[in-house]
Simulated assay, not measured.
Amino acid sequence: MNILAAILFLIILYSLGSALYYMYKDSGDSTRMVKSLSIRIGVSILLFVIMMAYSWFNM
């Protein structure tokens, strides 16, 4: 579980960093930043759900 959480956290950080890069590089001309932030939100929700399920079943 710890390895999965760490991997998902690294994916979240990578997505956040790529959104920052696209914000400066594209200057608002494309939707790559929005897609990157959407991926970050989705992975964050997935990580939260996995942690809640792990907590629930590991009682």
Score class of each variant (00 low, 15 high):
residue 36 S to D: 13
residue 9 F to Y: 05
residue 17 G to H: 07
residue 50 I to P: 02
residue 16 L to F: 12
residue 58 N to V: 01
residue 4 L to F: 03
residue 50 I to Y: 02
residue 44 S to R: 03
residue 55 S to R: 01
residue 4 L to C: 01
residue 12 I to M: 09
residue 51 M to V: 04
residue 55 S to Y: 03
residue 49 V to Y: 04
residue 27 S to E: 15
residue 33 M to A: 15
residue 13 L to Q: 07
residue 41 I to D: 14
residue 20 L to F: 13
residue 9 F to G: 09
residue 43 V to M: 10
residue 52 M to P: 01
residue 47 L to F: 05
residue 11 I to G: 04
residue 32 R to H: 12
residue 8 L to H: 01
residue 41 I to E: 14
residue 20 L to T: 06
residue 45 I to S: 05
residue 2 N to W: 07
residue 38 S to C: 10
residue 49 V to H: 01
residue 30 S to I: 10
residue 43 V to C: 04
residue 7 I to Q: 05
residue 43 V to A: 09
residue 53 A to R: 00
residue 29 D to N: 13
residue 39 I to R: 11
residue 11 I to F: 10
residue 33 M to N: 12
residue 24 Y to R: 09
residue 2 N to Y: 08
residue 33 M to H: 11
residue 7 I to K: 08
residue 36 S to V: 04
residue 59 M to Q: 05
residue 28 G to R: 06
residue 39 I to H: 12
residue 2 N to C: 10
residue 51 M to L: 13
residue 58 N to H: 03
residue 59 M to F: 05
residue 20 L to Q: 04
residue 26 D to F: 05
residue 52 M to R: 02
residue 25 K to L: 10
residue 5 A to C: 09
residue 13 L to H: 03
residue 12 I to D: 01
residue 23 M to G: 10
residue 37 L to R: 04
residue 22 Y to W: 07
residue 53 A to H: 02
residue 3 I to Y: 06
residue 25 K to I: 11
residue 22 Y to C: 07
residue 1 M to Q: 02
residue 52 M to S: 09
residue 8 L to N: 03
residue 11 I to W: 09
residue 5 A to Y: 12
residue 18 S to P: 03
residue 37 L to E: 08
residue 5 A to I: 08
residue 23 M to D: 13
residue 56 W to A: 06
residue 3 I to N: 09
residue 52 M to N: 06
residue 36 S to N: 13
residue 41 I to R: 13
residue 9 F to E: 14
residue 36 S to C: 12
residue 48 F to H: 03
residue 36 S to P: 02
residue 35 K to D: 12
residue 34 V to C: 03
residue 14 Y to G: 10
residue 39 I to P: 06
residue 4 L to E: 07
residue 27 S to G: 07
residue 46 L to T: 10
residue 59 M to C: 05
residue 38 S to V: 08
residue 1 M to C: 00
residue 21 Y to T: 08
residue 44 S to V: 01
residue 2 N to E: 13
residue 55 S to K: 05
residue 39 I to S: 12
residue 49 V to A: 10
residue 5 A to T: 11
residue 34 V to M: 14
residue 6 A to K: 08
residue 52 M to E: 04
residue 20 L to C: 11
residue 20 L to N: 00
residue 32 R to N: 15
residue 35 K to P: 01
residue 31 T to G: 13
residue 28 G to F: 07
residue 30 S to N: 14
residue 43 V to K: 00
residue 43 V to W: 03
residue 31 T to Q: 10
residue 1 M to P: 00
residue 27 S to M: 14
residue 5 A to Q: 04
residue 49 V to G: 01
residue 10 L to Y: 07
residue 50 I to K: 00
residue 32 R to Y: 13
residue 51 M to K: 11
residue 31 T to M: 15
residue 6 A to T: 12
residue 7 I to H: 08
residue 50 I to M: 03
residue 53 A to T: 08
residue 37 L to M: 14
residue 7 I to P: 00
residue 30 S to R: 13
residue 12 I to H: 00
residue 10 L to I: 01
residue 14 Y to H: 12
residue 52 M to T: 12
residue 3 I to M: 09
residue 6 A to E: 06
residue 35 K to I: 12
residue 32 R to P: 05
residue 16 L to H: 12
residue 48 F to K: 02
residue 47 L to K: 02
residue 58 N to D: 12
residue 3 I to K: 12
residue 4 L to Y: 04
residue 48 F to R: 02
residue 30 S to C: 14
residue 30 S to P: 04
residue 21 Y to R: 04
residue 38 S to G: 15
residue 18 S to E: 15
